[in-house]
Amino acid sequence: MTMKKDYAAMALLLALAGCGGGAQKADSPTDTTLSQDMDTAGEAVGMDRLAVAEQQYRAAGERALARDDVTAIGDSGYNLATVQLDANKPQDALATITATRAALAVRGQSGDDSGLDLVQAGALHRLGREAEAATAAARAAGAQDSDIAEKGQFIRGLIADDSGDQATLASVAAYFATLTGRVPPSWSADAKEIAARNLLATNGDARTAWQDALQAVTIRRHQVAYRDMARALGVAARAADRAGDGQAALQLYARASQSARQAGDTAAADRWAKLAGAPAADPFAQPAPPAHTK
Rank of each mutant, 00 (worst) to 15 (best):
Q258C: 04
D282R: 09
T82K: 13
D282V: 14
M3K: 00
P184A: 10
Q84H: 04
Q24L: 15
D27W: 13
P290I: 14
M3D: 04
A141S: 05
F176Y: 08
S35F: 12
A213T: 07
R220F: 08
G74M: 01
Q211K: 15
A191F: 03
Q36Y: 02
G21K: 11
S146H: 14
A216K: 01
P185C: 02
Q247G: 07
G20L: 11
A239D: 10
A239G: 10
A206L: 02
A285V: 10
N198D: 14
K274I: 13
L169M: 05
A263T: 07
R49F: 02
R207K: 11
L127T: 02
A281L: 08
L214G: 07
T266R: 04
F284D: 14
P283E: 03
F154E: 03
A105T: 08
R67S: 13
A196K: 09
A237W: 01
V183D: 08
T2M: 14
R271E: 14
D162H: 15
S35V: 15
A209D: 02
R261N: 12
P279W: 03
M47G: 11
T168S: 00
L200A: 01
G244Y: 04
A121C: 00
V106R: 07
A8D: 06
A64Q: 06
V83P: 02
T266E: 04
L127D: 04
Q84R: 01
A102R: 08
R255S: 03
Q91V: 13
A95M: 07
G204H: 06
D48A: 10
R182Y: 15
A239Q: 11
D265S: 15
G74T: 02
D27T: 13
P287Q: 14
L14C: 13
A140F: 00
G164L: 14
A201K: 13
K294W: 11
A9K: 07
Q166D: 11
M47V: 14
D165A: 09
Q84P: 02
K294R: 14
E130R: 10
K274D: 08
A95K: 08
A256Q: 00
T96R: 02
